[in-house]
Structures are given as structure tokens and as C-alpha cells.
Amino acid sequence: MALIKYTEDHEYISVENGVGTIGITDYAQGKLGDVTFVELPKIGEKVKQGQPIAVVESVKAASDIYSPVSGEVVEINEILNDKPELINQEPEAGAWIYKLTLSNTAELDKLMDQDAYLAYASAEG
């Protein structure tokens, strides 16, 4: 069973066997509206927790995706190049954005669990 955590910037990370799968939450895609483009990271790119690593765009907005944890990108979801709308359809499943190997699993402790995140998102309105 994968461990799922959330950030205040509305990214999720699902961790299994030291590999994290990252995307944006259903709440986030609803706020953003119709997604038109996803700028994916490069495989092999090293990132620190909280650094911008990808961009999700709608017609009138561009949102940076901040990496929930530090690590090295090992896989990117190239389906999003042709089907950015997948982010709207299944954000927390088929529309993951990238996978990375975690360099510091302790960073996960700073993130929210599902209950805390849902409370956070509903408070934001």
C-alpha cells in the first residue's frame, strides 16, 4: 500500500519502494480549469524539496509545480504532451506528472496526510 502525502501548493506524492509519484490534486485541477499544456521535467533532473520543477497551464493561468520532496527524476508522463486534459479527467491517477527517487524520506514528515489536506483545501474555499 502506497503512502500518500499532500503539499500546501496542492501537489500529491504517492510513495512506494522509495519512488514517489507526483501530480496535482483533484481540488487543484478544479481551481485551474481546463488544462492546456504541461511542461514536464527532464529525466535525470535533480530537484530539492519546494523547488519548481514543472508547469501546468490553463488558458489564463500558469501554475508552477513545486516538488514535494528532494530527489532525482526517473520517469515523466509523456502522455500529457498529447493529452493535457487528462489532468482534468484523472489528476490523481493516470495524470501523474513525474516520478522521482527520494533522497531524503524524512521530508515526507513535513507534508500533510489526506485528512489534513482535505481540511486545508476546504478551508481555502
Partner: peptide
């Protein structure tokens, strides 16, 4: 493709 432009992307 206006997300490239200043009125949306500002300093980026």
C-alpha cells in the same frame, strides 16, 4: 498561448 506573456506570467 498567452501564458508566455507578461500579463499572465509576469516575471517569468
Amino acid at each position: 498561448l498567452s501564458t508566455r506573456e507578461q500579463h499572465i506570467r509576469r516575471e517569468k
